[in-house]
Protein backbone atom coordinates (compact mmCIF):
# COMPACT_ATOMS: atom_id res chain seq x y z
CA UNK A 1 0.00 0.00 0.00
CA UNK A 2 1.54 3.29 -1.12
CA UNK A 3 0.27 6.17 0.96
CA UNK A 4 2.32 8.59 -1.08
CA UNK A 5 0.18 7.89 -4.11
CA UNK A 6 -3.02 7.99 -2.08
CA UNK A 7 -2.10 11.35 -0.63
CA UNK A 8 -0.92 12.69 -3.98
CA UNK A 9 -4.18 11.73 -5.66
CA UNK A 10 -6.23 13.26 -2.88
CA UNK A 11 -4.23 16.49 -2.84
CA UNK A 12 -4.44 16.83 -6.61
CA UNK A 13 -8.20 16.42 -6.48
CA UNK A 14 -8.46 18.90 -3.61
CA UNK A 15 -6.67 21.67 -5.50
CA UNK A 16 -7.42 20.65 -9.06
CA UNK A 17 -10.08 21.91 -11.48
CA UNK A 18 -12.79 19.66 -10.02
CA UNK A 19 -12.52 21.39 -6.66
CA UNK A 20 -12.56 24.79 -8.36
CA UNK A 21 -15.78 23.92 -10.18
CA UNK A 22 -17.35 22.62 -6.98
CA UNK A 23 -16.18 25.68 -5.04
CA UNK A 24 -17.76 28.10 -7.53
CA UNK A 25 -20.99 26.09 -7.60
CA UNK A 26 -21.05 26.12 -3.80
CA UNK A 27 -20.36 29.86 -3.58
CA UNK A 28 -23.36 30.46 -5.84
CA UNK A 29 -25.51 28.05 -3.87
CA UNK A 30 -24.39 29.72 -0.65
CA UNK A 31 -25.96 32.97 -1.86
CA UNK A 32 -29.21 31.14 -2.61
CA UNK A 33 -29.43 28.74 0.28
CA UNK A 34 -27.01 30.13 2.83
CA UNK A 35 -27.76 33.83 2.79
CA UNK A 36 -31.25 34.11 1.27
CA UNK A 37 -32.76 30.80 2.30
CA UNK A 38 -33.75 29.84 -1.24
CA UNK A 39 -33.97 26.07 -1.44
CA UNK A 40 -32.34 25.71 -4.84
CA UNK A 41 -32.07 22.04 -5.78
CA UNK A 42 -31.17 22.79 -9.37
CA UNK A 43 -27.78 24.43 -9.07
CA UNK A 44 -26.52 21.96 -11.67
CA UNK A 45 -28.83 23.64 -14.18
CA UNK A 46 -26.83 26.86 -13.94
CA UNK A 47 -23.54 24.96 -14.24
CA UNK A 48 -24.90 23.09 -17.24
CA UNK A 49 -25.99 26.22 -19.07
CA UNK A 50 -22.63 27.84 -18.36
CA UNK A 51 -20.81 24.84 -19.79
CA UNK A 52 -23.11 24.24 -22.74
CA UNK A 53 -23.49 27.92 -23.57
CA UNK A 54 -19.73 28.21 -23.93
CA UNK A 55 -19.28 24.88 -25.71
CA UNK A 56 -22.11 25.27 -28.21
CA UNK A 57 -21.16 28.83 -29.08
CA UNK A 58 -17.65 27.71 -29.97
CA UNK A 59 -18.26 24.21 -31.34
CA UNK A 60 -21.56 24.64 -33.19
CA UNK A 61 -21.52 28.31 -34.16
CA UNK A 62 -17.78 28.63 -34.52
CA UNK A 63 -17.58 31.78 -32.44
CA UNK A 64 -14.60 32.79 -30.38
CA UNK A 65 -14.23 31.39 -26.87
CA UNK A 66 -14.33 34.96 -25.57
CA UNK A 67 -17.81 35.29 -27.01
CA UNK A 68 -18.80 31.84 -25.81
CA UNK A 69 -18.01 32.51 -22.15
CA UNK A 70 -20.34 35.52 -21.82
CA UNK A 71 -23.02 33.55 -23.64
CA UNK A 72 -22.69 30.75 -21.08
CA UNK A 73 -22.96 33.21 -18.22
CA UNK A 74 -25.89 34.98 -19.87
CA UNK A 75 -27.78 31.71 -20.23
CA UNK A 76 -27.28 31.02 -16.52
CA UNK A 77 -28.65 34.49 -15.78
CA UNK A 78 -31.60 33.89 -18.09
CA UNK A 79 -32.38 30.64 -16.28
CA UNK A 80 -32.45 32.52 -12.98
CA UNK A 81 -34.98 34.99 -14.37
CA UNK A 82 -37.06 32.29 -16.00
CA UNK A 83 -37.17 30.24 -12.81
CA UNK A 84 -37.62 33.19 -10.50
CA UNK A 85 -40.52 35.06 -12.06
CA UNK A 86 -43.11 32.31 -11.66
CA UNK A 87 -41.80 30.59 -8.54
CA UNK A 88 -40.21 33.07 -6.16
CA UNK A 89 -43.59 34.22 -4.92
CA UNK A 90 -44.54 30.67 -4.03
CA UNK A 91 -43.65 28.67 -0.96
CA UNK A 92 -40.01 27.63 -0.51
CA UNK A 93 -40.85 23.99 -1.15
CA UNK A 94 -42.43 24.80 -4.51
CA UNK A 95 -39.25 26.56 -5.49
CA UNK A 96 -37.19 23.50 -4.57
CA UNK A 97 -39.38 21.23 -6.69
CA UNK A 98 -39.35 23.54 -9.67
CA UNK A 99 -35.58 24.01 -9.62
CA UNK A 100 -34.78 20.30 -9.50
CA UNK A 101 -37.29 19.62 -12.26
CA UNK A 102 -36.08 22.47 -14.44
CA UNK A 103 -32.47 21.31 -14.24
CA UNK A 104 -33.48 17.79 -15.25
CA UNK A 105 -35.65 19.05 -18.11
CA UNK A 106 -32.75 21.07 -19.47
CA UNK A 107 -30.39 18.11 -19.21
CA UNK A 108 -32.80 15.79 -20.98
CA UNK A 109 -33.44 18.32 -23.74
CA UNK A 110 -29.73 18.95 -24.26
CA UNK A 111 -29.00 15.24 -24.30
CA UNK A 112 -31.87 14.24 -26.60
CA UNK A 113 -31.15 12.91 -30.07
CA UNK A 114 -33.23 15.74 -31.55
CA UNK A 115 -30.65 18.18 -30.24
CA UNK A 116 -27.66 16.51 -31.88
CA UNK A 117 -27.31 19.28 -34.44
CA UNK A 118 -27.12 21.93 -31.73
CA UNK A 119 -25.65 20.45 -28.57
CA UNK A 120 -24.32 17.13 -29.77
CA UNK A 121 -27.18 15.44 -27.93
CA UNK A 122 -26.15 12.25 -26.14
CA UNK A 123 -22.83 12.30 -27.99
CA UNK A 124 -21.63 15.30 -25.99
CA UNK A 125 -19.98 18.31 -27.54
CA UNK A 126 -16.32 19.21 -27.77
CA UNK A 127 -14.50 22.28 -28.95
CA UNK A 128 -11.03 23.69 -29.19
CA UNK A 129 -10.19 25.72 -26.09
CA UNK A 130 -6.94 26.82 -27.71
CA UNK A 131 -7.80 30.48 -27.22
CA UNK A 132 -7.52 29.90 -23.49
CA UNK A 133 -4.43 27.72 -23.50
CA UNK A 134 -2.59 30.06 -25.90
CA UNK A 135 -2.27 32.40 -22.93
CA UNK A 136 -0.71 29.66 -20.79
CA UNK A 137 2.53 31.01 -19.27
CA UNK A 138 3.53 27.57 -17.92
CA UNK A 139 5.84 25.42 -20.03
CA UNK A 140 3.74 22.49 -21.17
CA UNK A 141 6.15 19.86 -22.41
CA UNK A 142 5.42 16.16 -21.80
CA UNK A 143 8.05 16.14 -19.04
CA UNK A 144 6.97 19.38 -17.31
CA UNK A 145 5.49 18.86 -13.86
CA UNK A 146 4.67 21.42 -11.20
CA UNK A 147 4.53 20.35 -7.55
CA UNK A 148 6.19 17.95 -5.15
CA UNK A 149 6.36 14.19 -5.60
CA UNK A 150 2.96 12.71 -6.41
CA UNK A 151 1.27 16.05 -5.83
CA UNK A 152 2.06 17.56 -9.22
CA UNK A 153 0.19 19.03 -12.18
CA UNK A 154 0.92 19.41 -15.88
CA UNK A 155 1.43 22.85 -17.42
CA UNK A 156 -2.08 22.90 -18.88
CA UNK A 157 -3.62 21.90 -15.57
CA UNK A 158 -1.57 24.56 -13.81
CA UNK A 159 -3.02 27.23 -16.09
CA UNK A 160 -6.60 26.14 -15.44
CA UNK A 161 -5.87 25.95 -11.73
CA UNK A 162 -4.26 29.39 -11.58
CA UNK A 163 -7.09 31.10 -13.41
CA UNK A 164 -9.68 29.03 -11.55
CA UNK A 165 -8.48 29.77 -8.04
CA UNK A 166 -8.00 33.44 -8.90
CA UNK A 167 -11.62 33.47 -10.02
CA UNK A 168 -12.68 31.76 -6.80
CA UNK A 169 -10.78 34.36 -4.76
CA UNK A 170 -12.26 37.23 -6.75
CA UNK A 171 -15.82 35.91 -6.55
CA UNK A 172 -15.47 35.18 -2.83
CA UNK A 173 -14.28 38.71 -2.23
CA UNK A 174 -17.17 40.10 -4.27
CA UNK A 175 -19.62 38.02 -2.26
CA UNK A 176 -18.02 39.26 0.95
CA UNK A 177 -18.48 42.87 -0.19
CA UNK A 178 -22.16 42.57 -1.05
CA UNK A 179 -23.13 40.36 1.89
CA UNK A 180 -21.60 42.59 4.58
CA UNK A 181 -23.53 45.56 3.14
CA UNK A 182 -27.08 46.59 4.04
CA UNK A 183 -28.10 44.65 0.93
CA UNK A 184 -26.76 41.46 2.49
CA UNK A 185 -28.56 42.30 5.71
CA UNK A 186 -31.86 42.36 3.83
CA UNK A 187 -31.09 38.93 2.36
CA UNK A 188 -30.52 37.52 5.83
CA UNK A 189 -33.76 39.03 7.06
CA UNK A 190 -35.59 37.35 4.18
CA UNK A 191 -33.94 34.05 5.02
CA UNK A 192 -35.33 34.25 8.52
CA UNK A 193 -38.73 35.76 8.03
CA UNK A 194 -40.07 37.14 4.78
CA UNK A 195 -43.03 38.81 6.45
CA UNK A 196 -40.78 40.66 8.85
CA UNK A 197 -38.76 41.95 5.90
CA UNK A 198 -41.96 42.99 4.14
CA UNK A 199 -43.30 44.76 7.19
CA UNK A 200 -40.09 46.81 7.21
CA UNK A 201 -40.65 47.93 3.63
CA UNK A 202 -38.36 45.53 1.78
CA UNK A 203 -39.44 44.26 -1.62
CA UNK A 204 -38.81 40.60 -0.92
CA UNK A 205 -39.40 39.35 -4.46
CA UNK A 206 -36.90 41.76 -5.92
CA UNK A 207 -34.18 40.80 -3.43
CA UNK A 208 -34.75 37.10 -3.94
CA UNK A 209 -34.52 37.58 -7.68
CA UNK A 210 -31.26 39.47 -7.36
CA UNK A 211 -29.83 36.74 -5.14
CA UNK A 212 -30.99 34.03 -7.53
CA UNK A 213 -29.38 35.80 -10.46
CA UNK A 214 -26.04 36.39 -8.75
CA UNK A 215 -25.79 32.85 -7.40
CA UNK A 216 -26.88 31.49 -10.78
CA UNK A 217 -24.20 33.39 -12.68
CA UNK A 218 -21.55 32.16 -10.24
CA UNK A 219 -22.84 28.62 -10.90
CA UNK A 220 -22.51 29.46 -14.60
CA UNK A 221 -18.85 30.34 -14.02
CA UNK A 222 -18.34 26.84 -12.61
CA UNK A 223 -19.77 25.53 -15.87
CA UNK A 224 -17.46 27.70 -17.96
CA UNK A 225 -14.40 26.36 -16.11
CA UNK A 226 -15.75 22.85 -16.56
CA UNK A 227 -16.16 23.39 -20.31
CA UNK A 228 -12.65 24.78 -20.69
CA UNK A 229 -11.10 22.05 -18.55
CA UNK A 230 -12.66 19.24 -20.56
CA UNK A 231 -12.83 21.17 -23.86
CA UNK A 232 -16.50 20.35 -24.10
CA UNK A 233 -19.56 19.19 -22.22
CA UNK A 234 -21.41 15.92 -21.72
CA UNK A 235 -25.04 15.69 -20.60
CA UNK A 236 -24.20 12.85 -18.22
CA UNK A 237 -21.95 15.16 -16.26
CA UNK A 238 -24.92 17.25 -15.14
CA UNK A 239 -27.09 14.80 -13.28
CA UNK A 240 -28.92 15.92 -10.11
CA UNK A 241 -26.21 14.51 -7.86
CA UNK A 242 -23.97 17.41 -8.89
CA UNK A 243 -26.35 19.64 -6.93
CA UNK A 244 -26.19 17.27 -3.98
CA UNK A 245 -22.39 17.22 -4.04
CA UNK A 246 -22.57 20.99 -4.02
CA UNK A 247 -24.83 20.92 -0.97
CA UNK A 248 -22.45 18.47 0.71
CA UNK A 249 -19.49 20.74 0.12
CA UNK A 250 -21.44 23.76 1.34
CA UNK A 251 -22.67 22.06 4.50
CA UNK A 252 -19.23 20.61 5.12
CA UNK A 253 -17.56 23.99 4.97
CA UNK A 254 -20.34 25.90 6.70
CA UNK A 255 -23.38 27.59 5.17
CA UNK A 256 -23.72 31.35 5.27
CA UNK A 257 -19.98 31.85 5.77
CA UNK A 258 -17.57 33.44 3.32
CA UNK A 259 -14.91 30.72 3.18
CA UNK A 260 -17.15 27.75 3.95
CA UNK A 261 -17.98 26.81 0.36
CA UNK A 262 -14.33 26.96 -0.71
CA UNK A 263 -13.05 24.94 2.24
CA UNK A 264 -15.92 22.51 1.81
CA UNK A 265 -15.15 21.95 -1.87
CA UNK A 266 -11.47 21.31 -1.15
CA UNK A 267 -12.26 18.94 1.68
CA UNK A 268 -14.99 17.17 -0.28
CA UNK A 269 -12.62 16.28 -3.12
CA UNK A 270 -9.76 15.43 -0.80
CA UNK A 271 -11.86 12.97 1.19
CA UNK A 272 -13.54 11.46 -1.83
CA UNK A 273 -10.30 10.91 -3.69
CA UNK A 274 -8.46 9.72 -0.61
CA UNK A 275 -11.06 7.04 0.08
CA UNK A 276 -11.22 6.00 -3.56
CA UNK A 277 -7.43 5.71 -3.91
CA UNK A 278 -7.19 3.91 -0.62
CA UNK A 279 -9.78 1.34 -1.68
CA UNK A 280 -8.09 0.88 -5.04
CA UNK A 281 -4.79 0.18 -3.30
CA UNK A 282 -6.52 -2.07 -0.83
CA UNK A 283 -8.05 -4.16 -3.60
CA UNK A 284 -4.55 -4.84 -4.92
CA UNK A 285 -3.32 -6.19 -1.58
CA UNK A 286 -2.45 -9.87 -1.76
CA UNK A 287 -3.69 -10.78 1.72
CA UNK A 288 -7.27 -9.74 0.96
CA UNK A 289 -9.73 -12.64 0.32
CA UNK A 290 -10.49 -12.89 -3.38
CA UNK A 291 -14.22 -12.19 -3.06
CA UNK A 292 -13.66 -8.89 -1.26
CA UNK A 293 -10.94 -7.83 -3.65
CA UNK A 294 -13.26 -8.56 -6.59
CA UNK A 295 -15.99 -6.52 -4.95
CA UNK A 296 -13.69 -3.57 -4.32
CA UNK A 297 -12.27 -3.71 -7.81
CA UNK A 298 -14.28 -1.29 -9.88
CA UNK A 299 -16.63 -0.12 -7.16
CA UNK A 300 -14.22 2.23 -5.37
CA UNK A 301 -16.02 5.21 -6.85
CA UNK A 302 -19.43 4.16 -5.56
CA UNK A 303 -18.09 3.29 -2.12
CA UNK A 304 -16.24 6.58 -1.79
CA UNK A 305 -19.39 8.53 -2.68
CA UNK A 306 -21.22 6.45 -0.09
CA UNK A 307 -18.58 7.29 2.49
CA UNK A 308 -18.93 10.99 1.69
CA UNK A 309 -22.66 10.61 2.26
CA UNK A 310 -21.98 8.95 5.60
CA UNK A 311 -19.60 11.76 6.50
CA UNK A 312 -22.38 14.23 5.73
CA UNK A 313 -24.80 12.39 8.03
CA UNK A 314 -22.24 12.39 10.86
CA UNK A 315 -21.53 16.04 10.21
CA UNK A 316 -25.22 16.97 10.47
CA UNK A 317 -25.45 15.04 13.72
CA UNK A 318 -22.34 16.32 15.45
CA UNK A 319 -21.37 19.57 13.79
CA UNK A 320 -24.37 20.92 11.89
CA UNK A 321 -22.78 24.34 11.46
CA UNK A 322 -19.96 22.89 9.33
CA UNK A 323 -16.29 23.63 9.81
CA UNK A 324 -16.49 27.40 9.86
CA UNK A 325 -20.07 28.01 10.98
CA UNK A 326 -21.31 29.54 14.20
CA UNK A 327 -22.74 27.01 16.62
CA UNK A 328 -24.81 29.50 18.59
CA UNK A 329 -26.42 30.79 15.42
CA UNK A 330 -27.42 27.26 14.49
CA UNK A 331 -28.96 26.59 17.86
CA UNK A 332 -31.26 29.57 17.59
CA UNK A 333 -32.95 27.66 14.79
CA UNK A 334 -34.09 24.92 17.09
CA UNK A 335 -36.52 27.13 18.97
Amino acid sequence: MDFDIIFGNAARAAFGPEAIILALAAIGLNIHFGFTGLLNFGQVGFIMLGAYGTSVAVATFGWSLWVGIPIGLFLALALAVALGIPTLRLHAVMFAIVTIAAAEIIRILIGSTDAIGLTGGPLSVSFDAGAFFDLNPYADGPQDRYGVGTFAFTGQQMWVITVGWLLVALVSFGVFLIIRSPWGRVLKSIREDQDAARSLGKNVFSYKMQALMIGGVIGGMAGVIDAIKTSGADPNGFRPQVTFYTYTALLLGGTATYLGPVLGAILFWFLREWIESFLRQLAAEAWLPGAIADFLEGSEGIISVGMVGLALVLLMLFRPQGITGNRIEMQLDAR
Binding site: D193, L200, K202
Partner: peptide
Protein backbone atom coordinates in the same frame (compact mmCIF):
# COMPACT_ATOMS: atom_id res chain seq x y z
CA UNK B 1 -40.92 38.59 14.33
CA UNK B 2 -37.59 39.63 15.69
CA UNK B 3 -34.89 38.17 13.47
CA UNK B 4 -33.17 35.72 15.80
CA UNK B 5 -29.95 35.26 13.86
CA UNK B 6 -29.25 38.94 13.45
CA UNK B 7 -27.88 41.05 16.25
CA UNK B 8 -30.19 43.47 18.01
CA UNK B 9 -28.44 46.36 16.26
CA UNK B 10 -28.75 44.69 12.84
CA UNK B 11 -32.45 44.21 13.53
CA UNK B 12 -32.75 47.90 14.21
CA UNK B 13 -30.79 48.93 11.12
CA UNK B 14 -33.13 46.86 8.96
CA UNK B 15 -35.91 49.18 9.97
Amino acid sequence: KSLAKLSVLQNMLLG
